[in-house]
Design a binder for these strands. Structure first.
Length: 120
DNA sequence: TCTCTGACTGCGT
DNA sequence: AACGCAGCCAGAG
């Protein structure tokens, strides 16, 4: 599309894309900021994906945007501090059957869900 | 308008 | 293998 867009609208659109991808992550599976950024064309840094989630949860809610399923490339729950409580992210994951020990997703390599591969 | 910081990642030393 | 640096873009002071 060649419609002129304001910067504010462009970033809002990016947020929407992130929300949609995160929503596609199956329960009990996890993905990473970098994988999502790569799937969206890697135009935006992986940081922007995380930044989008900060706005995503308060706006759409954890039910609409399961942000707990997005961790960093090491499988660490780096964003737990942004949840209601420090343990909310871990509890949400464990409720789906994902084992979390010391802020680290167990069996991360097996549970990893890459949108570029799984979603085609 | 400039500067700093941040739910990150990959590459070079 | 470990550490440091730069790139990514947006929002706050």
């Amino acid at each position: 599309m060649s419609l002129p867009r304001n910067p504010a609208e462009a970033s809002r659109n990016f947020f929407e894309e992130v929300h949609e991808v995160v929503r596609l992550i199956p329960p009990g599976r996890v993905s990473t900021y970098g994988a999502i950024a790569h799937y969206l064309g890697a135009k935006h840094g992986a940081r922007m994906v995380g930044y989008a989630l900060i706005a995503a949860v308060p706006a759409r809610g954890l039910d609409a945007v399961p942000a707990q399923r997005v961790v960093n490339r090491n499988g660490l729950l780096t964003g737990r501090h942004h949840f209601a409580t420090p343990t909310a992210m871990q509890e949400a994951l464990e409720a789906e059957g994902v084992r979390v020990v010391d802020d680290e997703v167990q069996d991360f390599k097996r549970l990893f869900w890459d949108p570029s591969t799984e979603l085609e």
